[in-house]
Structure formats: structure tokens, C-alpha cells
Design a binder for these strands. Structure first.
Lengths: 203, 203
DNA sequence: GTCTATAGCCAGATAGAC
DNA sequence: GTCTATCTGGCTATAGAC
């Protein structure tokens, strides 16, 4: 039996806070607004999370823990390079269509407070390029792909997949696309991006 | 005779506001902080710009007017496709190394308030993909580049060039690069990115 | 144009009853 | 655990002297 109405107050708060913080950021969010969204009394926010800052950190960590596994597919799974590129481009776009504000939220707050990264690095599963680098260097020496630095390829993979979500409002303006048309463009990118990358690195 | 000390109060305010807003966003910025940075009395901010909102809009428009010409090099100059890609990748990165917070600032505030784009579109020189689309379709039919949608190529060009700046703190963590090392990676991208794109679209 | 002083508001946080 | 009421501080904005 699934009791959706039985989620705890603590959880309701976290979900509401997620929504509000992702849209408005730390400084733009209001505790009252989060309470309203969670349909809960404002003082309960403080009862469960002590302060706005701590509530925010809980939200941020939860968001980051959603994103990290996606990145780790590229960096730490045992698929071939091509499969990684194909799967990541497909899966990440699907994932993002469900959580469009997530990358923007994370990048925004990290830019505001870069020391946050230092804390994150110590956490388990923080994505690290080491294994990917070994894989790329091996593929190059075996003549599977052209010469390219692992860091540059990795940045390219992230950029091509993530940027269209972060820059959505601006790109929509440039290409004169409605929300619906832009969504179609994003859908096409599920295969388009992998194709674009592979065409560039194959020999 | 250049009198750098002679810039008006109005200008001093705008420069300071630019700095603070780009770092902290609209809601995170404090009028007092801007006044301190401009070394000017806080009430002068209101004297010259009436309200925080209007000061912010002045800053935002100034920032956008710095960025738009860069984009228009890709969309509306009469260079060849290859030259556009090569020059943009080179120039944009140079430009961004001087204004690293600019794209993040613009995208952040547009995501918070997407209606802002509607206002911007009516302004002169708002980048539009129309001419670029014609150029790409011509190049394809002439057999100069492979089949690709202009929108997708355009998004890719922007993504590869802009994303590394927006996501700097995160990528630095993933690839374990210091500020200095990351700057070297970005410098290399001036040629690396154009190369990556051209390899993908050439026949 | 530039300053000081302060109005007026609103947000985060807490006290304390139930 | 949940509520109401309230404190406290900080912020935008303005009034008014110079």
C-alpha cells in the first residue's frame, strides 16, 4: 500500500524547499513561501532545519547527489567510450527534461560560493576524471579515436549536454522557438549530441 | 588628457553595481555594498537610479549589450562558416577571461525572469539565427559541410564556448585543476573548440 | 548634488501555549 | 510536534538640511 499522504513534515519541507530554492536561489527564496508550498507552519521549518542556511544546504546536497551519478556514468562506468557518449547524451537529456532547474541551481550557487566544492569533494562518489583519462589515453594509443586531451573531451561532453538547459531562455530568443518547439530541439539532441561528438573524435 | 578620476558619480555607481550584481545577483546584492564599492553615499544610488530594480536593469542591459555583439559575429557577420567558428572560439574565450561572471549573470537572471527576454528581443541588434540558417543550408547544398540543423550547430558552438566559464568551479573539482591549471585548459580551448567543431561537420 | 537621519517594511528566528 | 504571537535586525527608500 502506497501512502503518498503519509510523507513526513520533514520531507514535505525538503521537497518544497527544493522547488523554491531551485527557482529563486538562496537569497531570493522566502521561508514563508517554502512553508506555504509545503502547506506547513513556518516555525516548523526552523524546528526541523534550524535555519534557512541549513535547510538550503540540505537541498543543495540532495540536488548534487542526483546529479553526481549521471556524471559518473561518463567517468566511472565500464562502458566503451562510444557507449558512454551515446548513453549519457540520451539519459542526461531525459533526466534534465524532468529537472530543468537543477544544473542552473547547482552552478549558480557554486559560483556564488566556490568553497562549497571543497566540501563536496570529500563526499563519496564525487566525480573524478582519473579513470576516464586512462580510458581515453588507451583508446588513443590503440587507434580507436584521434588524439585529444581527456579533460577537453570531458568538458565538451558536459557542455553540449548541459548548456542547452542552462541557457534555455536565451537560446529560445535567438532561434525564435516557443517552449514547445524548444522541447523538440532538446529531444533531438538526445541522439544529435552523441553523433556530433563521435564524428569529431573518430579516426 | 585622460582623467580617470573624473568619472561621474553616475558612472562610478554603475561600475560598482555591475561588480556586485554580477557576483551576488539581484536579491543577493545590497545597496549599501554597492555604495561602499563606489565610494559614494548610499542615498546617491537612489538619486541617480531611483530604485534597486532600475539600477539592476541598467546593469543588466549594459551587460547584455557587451555580450550580444559577440554572438552576432557568429550569426550576422559575412565570414565563412569556418572563419566564424575559428574567430568566435578564439575571441569569445579571450573576452570571457576578462569578464568571467558575465554569462552566468545573464543566464541566471533570465532564468529567474524569462519575460526579460521579451523586452530584450525588441532591442536593436538582438541576435537572431535567420541569416546563419541561410548560410548553413547553402553550405550543405554546396557540399561544404555535412547535413546538420543550423539550430543544433549554433547551440553546440555556444555550448562549447560558454559552458566552461559557467561551470568553472564544478569542472575544476572534477578534473582536480587549480585556478592556474584551469586557466591553461581554457586558453587551449581557444583553438581546441574550433578544431573539435570543424572535425565534426566537415565532409 | 551630497550628506545625515529615519521612516517603514519585511524577513528570519524564537518563546511559549497546547 | 504544531501552533500563534512577537522580537530583532537589516534592508530599501525618502525627508530634509546644507
Amino acid at each position: 500500500m502506497i501512502k503518498t499522504k503519509d510523507i513526513s513534515a520533514e520531507e514535505k519541507i525538503l521537497n518544497a524547499a527544493e522547488h523554491i530554492f531551485e527557482n529563486k536561489g538562496l537569497s531570493g527564496a522566502r521561508m514563508q513561501e517554502i512553508a506555504d508550498e509545503a502547506k506547513i507552519n513556518k516555525s516548523l521549518l526552523h524546528y526541523y532545519y534550524r535555519s534557512k542556511q541549513l535547510l538550503f544546504e540540505a537541498v543543495f546536497k540532495k540536488a548534487f547527489n542526483k546529479l553526481a551519478p549521471q556524471i559518473n556514468v561518463v567517468l566511472n562506468s565500464d562502458q566503451s567510450i562510444c557507449d558512454k557518449i551515446i548513453n549519457f547524451s540520451n539519459n542526461y537529456t531525459s533526466f534534465m527534461l524532468k529537472h530543468p532547474y537543477l544544473p542552473n541551481f547547482i552552478l549558480q550557487e557554486l559560483n556564488r560560493n566556490p568553497d562549497f566544492v571543497t566540501e563536496l569533494i570529500s563526499v563519496d562518489n564525487f566525480p573524478n576524471i582519473k579513470n576516464f583519462k586512462i580510458q581515453i589515453e588507451k583508446a588513443i594509443s590503440e587507434g580507436k579515436i584521434r588524439q585529444i586531451k581527456a579533460e577537453q573531451l570531458f568538458i565538451n561532453i558536459l557542455a553540449l549536454n548541459i548548456f542547452p538547459f542552462i541557457a534555455a531562455p536565451l537560446i529560445k530568443g535567438f532561434v525564435e522557438a516557443s517552449d514547445k518547439e524548444y522541447k523538440i530541439i532538446l529531444e533531438k539532441r538526445k541522439t544529435e549530441v552523441a553523433d556530433f561528438i563521435i564524428k569529431s573524435i573518430k579516426l
